[in-house]
Amino acid sequence: MKQLHVEQLAQIRKAEVEFGDLTLLVGPQASGKSVFLQLFKLVKDHGPITKTLKRYGYSYEPGATENADDPLLTLMFGEGMGAIWRKESRVKPDGNTVDLTALRKGNGKDQESVFFVPAQRVLTLDQGRPRSYESFAALDPFVVKSFSEHLRRLMEKGLGGQDNQLFPIKSRLKEVLRDRIDDSIFHGATVTQEVHDLKKRIVINAGGATLPYMAWSAGQREFMPLLFSLYWLMPSAGSARRKGVDWVVIEEPEMGLHPQAIQSVLLICLELMHRGYKVVISTHSPLLLEAAWAIRTLQDNKGTPEALFELFDLSNSPGMRDVFGAVLSDKVVRSFYFEPGEKGVSTRDISSLDPFSEDDSIADWGGITEFSSRASDVISRLMQEADE
């Protein structure tokens, strides 16, 4: 899919996103970013999704509920979301209209092509143990339950390395990425599995102490499910990827993380792009937009990998040189603003991210830098007045 066009769905009046190798979606809370991304997942993977629902005994045909809510929408988006697709709604992937009838039929595929990391990922770990699909409420969003079940199966199959160590593992991720994650998130600690109450759980070992789930920092709790996802998406420290998986969607990867840790996540996203995945991110982080602006500017001005080594404060290494070279030479970076209005949300293509643009949506990066720009103007004016 190169483009998804949506009209009159939930709070979205009109949204049109043309995807790049890295696509950033920005906008205030409740502006439809998550609805749009879950819809993207449903359009791409309705076959595997409907098969999963059947396997767990859910009925998603019209009339399965007493009210007018559509059961497939309720099961996909969560309780209270069953009426977001109205008569006037239009959903067009690459210009081809699809409807709920077609999505209910499935597409005969078993393999999901979109790996979706939801914003609610912290809910997938219960005392350091990934939760099963059926441990969630029946009407919790599909992407949360599916993601958690995926992590649980990974743990069952033996995700760890020697001595049940989960981080760091030499065969997982490039050394430079492991080092950045360690420096920004774990600070020399190791992550392992141990048996507690006859069940395996994930713990952090720091300074000779074993820290259970509730003793982790908020950032560590947010990052851990993402880390295990990356292990699966990047099965070796080389350039391998998962067959059949083309897209990686990550909602708000910055949650709970220090800016240095967000840089580590961004480096991992560049690695995912280098391996051939298309990455779509919803974010409120100016750091991610700054990186997108820097990459596009370097591309336009024939920048070299050395500039990205300097940007990310990294020592030159062959592996990351390949990643940076690929990003600068043939990867497309796009950004879209979900802009609320009186008649609903519409999208704006702000991919240039030109801080000198006359369009405020572009110059302020979808409102993300609006306050800092205003603060700079206020302080600058006050200092000029003081000099006078």
Rank of each mutant, 00 (worst) to 15 (best):
A10P: 00
L39F: 06
D300M: 11
E112K: 12
Q29M: 11
L267H: 04
L314Y: 06
S315N: 13
V203Y: 03
L154D: 08
W365V: 04
D349R: 09
Q3C: 15
A307E: 13
A326T: 14
D99T: 10
Q263K: 12
C269P: 03
R153T: 10
L22N: 01
T190N: 10
V6A: 03
G244V: 09
I49K: 00
P212D: 03
I84P: 04
F371I: 14
I262S: 02
L233Q: 03
A138C: 01
V195S: 12
R152I: 03
D179P: 00
A218C: 05
S59E: 14
S352A: 14
G276R: 04
V378W: 08
S376E: 15
Q11L: 12
L37W: 03
L37H: 00
E112W: 01
A209T: 11
F336N: 04
E310T: 14
D69S: 15
I185K: 00
V327T: 13
V122E: 10
D70R: 00
R275L: 06
L177R: 02
N316A: 11
Y56D: 08
T97A: 14
G341Q: 09
D300L: 11
V345R: 02
D322S: 10
S113C: 10
M234L: 14
G244K: 09
W293Q: 13
S352R: 09
L266N: 10
K302F: 13
L270D: 02
Y133Q: 01
K51R: 14
S148G: 05
S229L: 01
E358V: 04
R172F: 09
H196T: 12
P318M: 03
I281S: 05
A137Q: 14
M255Y: 05
M214S: 15
T23H: 02
R241A: 11
P286C: 07
A10H: 07
S373Q: 15
V333C: 06
S361E: 12
Q8A: 14
N164R: 13
S317W: 00
V280Q: 03
D21N: 12
G57Y: 04
V332A: 07
Q29S: 11
T192M: 12
V98C: 07
V91E: 10
L287T: 11
S373N: 15
L123F: 07
P318G: 05
K2W: 12
F40K: 02
L73M: 14
V35M: 07
L308K: 01
K92G: 00
K278V: 07
K92Q: 14
F142V: 02
A209V: 10
L287A: 12
Y60D: 09
L289V: 08
A326F: 06
W232K: 13
H5S: 12
Y213N: 06
T23F: 05
E251Y: 09
Q165E: 15
E254T: 02
A15S: 07
S372V: 15
F116E: 08
T101L: 11
R221A: 08
D179C: 06
P235S: 04
Q299A: 08
E61M: 11
G27V: 03
M76C: 08
L328E: 07
S317T: 10
G106R: 05
H187G: 01
